[in-house]
């Protein structure tokens, strides 16, 4: 039987692939060592333009709140696995030689990282806003609606999926899949529990709509990521800013800085650290500066101390084993 991957080994396709790899559409950034010394929220606040925020007719008024991680008892706060269960688990992993990098996708991407994305734009009526939520709803004046929360969460989820693409294919793909699965599962439950959408026909319709929005925004942000800042500003305006007519360009600038900064931090994180769920989004109140070579050397030294068996002398237990690189 002819398999598609075999077809691809043929010389014609090899040439096609080569020519494609040679053409360079990606705009190469020029080296630059100085930057505007204001944080994204300071940039947003420097604007004097008086923007009218559309009246909010759909506040999030929950009957009960969804937990940040999940309903599972294993993810409740303060839950401790009994030590006999832990030992059995480690033994099973060792005996069956389970690939923990694959298993980790669920609890890390599907739970820890999803919670991190969800937290950024979370708001409820008559409750104080978190730091990042304050930036999105007060500093850059986005409307406080469920759809806006979706846009903010999807933006953060896209940033994580850009980093996941740089992991080895079979792991990165799995991480992306788990993150999106969890996103839509949680949205379905949020619509029912927190937005009081009781009809499943209507909530399905919303979810389909959000699905097509997600596809569109991933495409436009990806295009923008590989081209330039104005394309990113346009993509953000179409998606995050709902294509509103009275947009403030200073707010767009603040968002461009925010997104590029987060992606820079993600690019400096090793596969191992990222896959273990150690990434946290940097607050928009903080300015991200480039790492100096000394700082990068220090990071590499610490990674070696933590993960390199030959240096720290600690043999990792089966569930903490990983084949991912900690040096990149």
């Amino acid at each position: 039987m002819l398999r598609i991957s075999n077809i691809y080994q043929r010389p014609v396709f090899a040439i096609l692939r080569q020519t494609r790899a040679n053409s360079s559409f990606i705009q190469q950034p020029k080296p630059l060592n100085t930057i505007d010394k204001r944080s994204p929220s300071q940039i947003a606040n420097s604007s004097t333009l008086d923007i009218e925020v559309p009246q909010n007719k759909a506040p999030v008024k929950p009957k009960k709140k969804r937990p940040l991680l999940s309903d599972s008892k294993y993810e409740q706060q303060g839950y401790q696995l009994p030590s006999y269960a832990k030992n059995i688990g480690e033994w099973v992993i060792k005996l069956l030689m389970i690939d923990m990098d694959k298993v980790r996708a669920g609890p890390i991407a599907g739970s820890v990282y999803y919670a991190e994305c969800k937290r950024q734009g979370l708001q409820f009526e008559d409750e104080p806003l978190s730091d990042t939520a304050y930036f999105f709803y007060e500093d850059i004046k986005l409307p406080k609606t469920f759809s806006q929360w979706f846009q903010i969460t999807a933006l953060h989820q896209w940033m994580l999926s850009v980093r996941m693409r740089a992991m080895p294919f079979k792991y990165g793909r799995n991480y992306q899949q788990k993150l999106v699965d969890r996103f839509f599962r949680d949205m379905q439950l949020r619509l029912a529990d927190e937005m009081n959408v009781n009809s499943s026909r209507i909530s399905d319709q919303y979810l389909k709509d959000y699905n097509s929005q997600l596809r569109g925004l991933v495409c436009s942000y990806d295009e923008a990521f590989a081209t330039d800042d104005i394309t990113l500003a346009q993509a953000l305006w179409r998606n995050l800013f709902n294509a509103q007519k009275n947009v403030d360009i200073t707010h767009l600038e603040a968002m461009v800085k925010y997104v590029r900064g987060q992606l820079y931090v993600l690019s400096k994180m090793s596969d191992r650290d990222f896959a273990f769920g150690k990434f946290k989004f940097v607050s928009p109140n903080e300015l991200i500066l480039k790492f100096t070579p000394e700082q990068e050397a220090e990071m590499l030294k610490r990674a070696n101390e933590e993960y390199n068996f030959e240096i720290n002398g600690k043999k990792p237990i089966p569930s903490e084993k990983s084949k991912l690189s900690y040096e990149n």
């Binding site: 080296p31 630059l32 800042d229 990113l232 800085k257 900064g261 991200i288």
Partner: peptide, 9 residues
């Protein structure tokens, strides 16, 4: 393009 160039991933 200062942000793209400075925060070069």
């Amino acid at each position: 393009n200062q942000y793209r160039d400075y925060y070069n991933p």
